[in-house]
Simulated scan of single mutants.
Amino acid sequence: MKPKELIRTSLSHESFTISKHKLPRFLNVWHYHQELELIYIKKSTGTKFIGDSIERFSAGDLVLVGSCLPHLWLNDKIYFERKDLITEAWVIHFHPHCFGERFFNIPEMHKIFKVMEDAKVGIRINGVNKEKIIERMEKIFFESDFDKVMSLLHIMKLIEGEPDKTSLSSHSFINAYTKNSSTKLDKVYEFVLNNFKQEINLNQTAELVHMNPSAFSRYFKQTTNKTFVQFLNEVRIGYACKILLDEDDKNVSEIAFECGYNNLSNFNKQFKLITGKTPRAYLTSHRQADLMVND
């Protein structure tokens, strides 16, 4: 079930698109696009697949999906059976370079750029700014062109300032990770992403950045809010999810070995810890989604 790229080209006189969708069902395609997607679910229920995250969604959900992140909003079965039900969503699509290639790279936009980078794994917005964002989204449909631009920037500022945000997919699902100004972390990320299929230990990683293992462990935890072992397991399990979805001819043992695990029980344990499902249950969930999409 490889994701399909959708081309969401804006009109020549628009730098980004805003839309209200009222349909019997949402678009039932496992897909990705260059544009970021801010979506507010006004009316609907179902399961959202964002990267390797699988969660329920319902009215009131507000999510920012990053550029090139595969996703699918799959309505509950009742929406496929009844013709009197309607889904409703408000959506903003904007390309990372919608205001020019360097606009979000200027110092004043640093925090907004950070949000766009974080969104590469998907962000669910939960807290005090959520209602303010929804109110601004509602107004943007009736604003002038200039005010629409200001509103989009204001919305992104509200997302950046929201303390209650939840990352959805693992950072490794599309081999994307949050950029950090630390050269040390850049080296560690690059090393892990290039070598996670092999045995990696704390000592060799610490040596890479010229630190002793204890100091490196403290530094990594303080900087990323997770242990190095947690990060390594996320990378490996994120890659395992991709293999499960893309390569039907491999069994779980083969996938575990390919992802750097020599112990199948440990692989199964880590997979469930990170995704909330066993490998087979995870695959079944996606296959059921695929069958419903193609009904």
Rank of each mutant, 00 (worst) to 15 (best):
K22L: 11
K22W: 03
K22V: 15
P24K: 14
R25M: 15
R25T: 15
F26E: 11
F26V: 07
L27D: 14
L27E: 15
L27P: 08
H31G: 06
H31F: 03
H33S: 03
E37K: 04
L38R: 07
Y40D: 06
Y40H: 14
Y40G: 03
K42M: 00
S44N: 14
G46A: 10
T47G: 10
T47F: 12
T47N: 12
F49R: 05
G51W: 01
G51F: 02
D52E: 11
D52A: 08
S53R: 08
S53Q: 11
I54Q: 06
E55I: 00
R56A: 14
R56K: 15
S58I: 09
S58W: 09
D61G: 06
V63R: 03
V65S: 00
G66D: 09
G66M: 07
P70N: 08
P70M: 03
H71Y: 09
L72Q: 12
L72H: 15
L74R: 14
L74Y: 13
N75A: 15
N75M: 14
N75W: 10
D76V: 12
K77Y: 15
I78S: 14
I78W: 11
I78H: 11
Y79A: 08
R82L: 13
K83I: 10
D84K: 06
L85A: 10
L85F: 09
L85V: 12
I86D: 11
I86N: 11
T87A: 13
E88Q: 15
W90S: 11
V91Q: 11
H93C: 07
F94M: 01
F94R: 01
P96S: 08
P96I: 05
C98A: 09
G100D: 13
G100C: 14
F103Q: 03
N105F: 12
I106D: 04
E108D: 09
E108I: 07
E108G: 08
M109N: 06
M109Q: 14
H110A: 13
H110R: 13
K111W: 05
I112F: 01
F113K: 11
K114C: 00
V115Q: 06
E117I: 05
E117D: 15
E117W: 01
D118V: 06
A119F: 00
V121C: 07
V121G: 04
I123W: 02
I123R: 05
R124G: 05
I125Q: 04
I125C: 06
N126D: 05
G127C: 11
G127R: 13
V128Y: 02
V128W: 00
V128Q: 09
N129C: 02
K130W: 02
K132Q: 02
K132W: 00
I133T: 02
E135H: 03
R136V: 00
E138S: 07
K139F: 00
F141R: 04
E143T: 00
F146G: 05
D147P: 04
K148Q: 15
M150W: 02
S151W: 06
L152P: 02
L152M: 07
L153N: 03
L153K: 08
L153S: 04
H154K: 11
H154M: 04
I155N: 05
I155D: 06
I159C: 07
E160D: 12
E160N: 10
